[in-house]
Nucleic acid binder design. Structure first.
Lengths: 248, 248
DNA sequence: ATCCATTATTGATTCATGTCAAAACCGTAC
DNA sequence: GTACGGTTTTGACATGAATCAATAATGGAT
């Protein structure tokens, strides 16, 4: 969309980070205005993926990281036995593929949860650029460490928290990510199915469903399918901390 | 130890990556022989920590990454409520602190599980060096992505696998890490207490204990305190895959 | 508008693991 | 050697969430 209204269109394949509404969240965030061209030089204008289409597949050669421009992506790993584990959800402005950095092959599979457009950063060119722009390198380190931390938080959630706490935490996480994009943090539509939520949080679908209805009965949220309204954010925050209270 | 036999000792504070027996596992792995001096220039000769001592603390300013030279380290995060989650165990040759890269503060707390010596890499100097040595930068990306992947694997273990499967997986992981150092992969002593294992794997101590005895009764392992012998590695590998078998 | 496949909800039952409680073991200090 | 604090083990019991099973709702395709 932001692309459609570009004025100084040089090449149809070149993305314009300058004009992108997500530049304050995405990689441009770490690049000086006058260096931004160098980032634009390596970005490949985003393809569009329909729901369910693969952006990349586990074990295929690692070529690029992808920034979500619109839509949403889920990543998952498949173990030898074929069991799937959803490892993350990626919203606009977020970078997918960091878990494969420095590797020969993708460490996970990424698919579009809805109609999704992405910007592609070929990895060899990106690595070249990060040696030239120390701030960008620093930012890459930062993003990767964030992903490690997020993953540790997830591990904590999985090993210590109840179904209600996990779901409350996810709702709050999504809420704050919508807010960063200046969208409503209390009224949004979930990009993923109950199944994905369940898988991500280490629960059975039935449990997710039950918790949703329990939250609704308590007046904490209101949900109709994927449309969710957080009626009582404080209550949700309390749920995520409840566990602690009982255990101090 | 490797330090004690250095011949060309310039400064007593300077480490010698050249002579270190772990150079094939640690950062030197990614640096050309003739560039190794530049890495040595920034390394600070390792302090020694006794069991239980903190190498660094969560939320204090992030200054350095640490390579384990001998001993072992555990990292953990403490949630607002004071609940601890062990996020990793680090053995000689492994790098601690990657989850804080690009951040202002340490994302976790690191403590010595036994008497431990470390090499310290001040982060500002390390970042400077990685823009000069693209191979080193690439390796840092690789290490960080490995940590993301490991954390995803942990999440999978926590959300999909039984107590037995989790413990079998941990034993096999430790085994292979001992083997990389040319030590016995079947006969080693656990650097961590049952409690740490339980916490890391999202189990109760009692459960860990029970699984250990169950494995012993089945003749898969033999354990006396922290001394462990893997009697039947194949059986352990089967345990980690069992889950799948039942579910295909 | 209708049909079919997929997804979501609800209920009944089971089971792995947590919790509580107590005993056994271990290493360290005196 | 003995005594102590902290681990580790073992047992009995409770429970949260999985599983099994069925029904309801949704949304895309015709």
């Amino acid at each position: 969309m932001a692309q459609a209204i570009r004025l100084h269109q040089v090449s149809p394949l070149k993305a314009s980070c300058h004009q992108c509404s997500l530049s304050n969240l995405c990689l441009p965030l770490a690049v000086e205005e006058n260096e931004l061209d160098r980032l634009e030089d390596i970005v490949q204008q985003g393809r569009i993926f329909n729901r369910g289409e693969h952006i990349f597949d586990q074990s295929t050669p690692f070529r690029s990281c992808f920034a979500v421009k619109s839509g949403a992506i889920k990543t998952s790993i498949i173990s030898e036995n074929g069991e799937e584990q959803v490892t993350g959800f990626f919203m606009p402005g977020e970078l997918v593929g960091l878990d494969s950095m420095g590797s020969k092959h993708y460490a996970c599979t990424a698919r579009a949860l809805e109609r999704t457009s992405v910007c592609e950063f070929p990895i060899d060119r990106l690595e070249e650029l990060t040696v030239k722009l120390p701030d960008l390198q620093h930012h890459m380190y930062h993003l990767m460490s964030q992903e490690i931390q997020g993953s540790h938080q997830l591990a904590m959630l999985l090993s210590k928290n109840t179904a209600e706490e996990r779901i409350a935490a996810l709702l709050l996480s999504l809420s704050s990510r919508f807010q960063r994009r200046r969208l409503s943090g209390t009224n949004f539509s979930l990009p993923m199915a109950r199944n994905d939520i369940a898988n991500f949080l280490g629960l059975a679908v039935e449990t997710v469903s039950r918790v949703f209805t329990r939250f609704q009965n308590q007046g904490i949220i209101s949900a109709r399918g994927r449309e969710v309204e957080l009626l009582d954010v404080e209550a949700l925050q309390t749920v995520t901390r409840e566990f602690s209270r009982q255990n101090i």
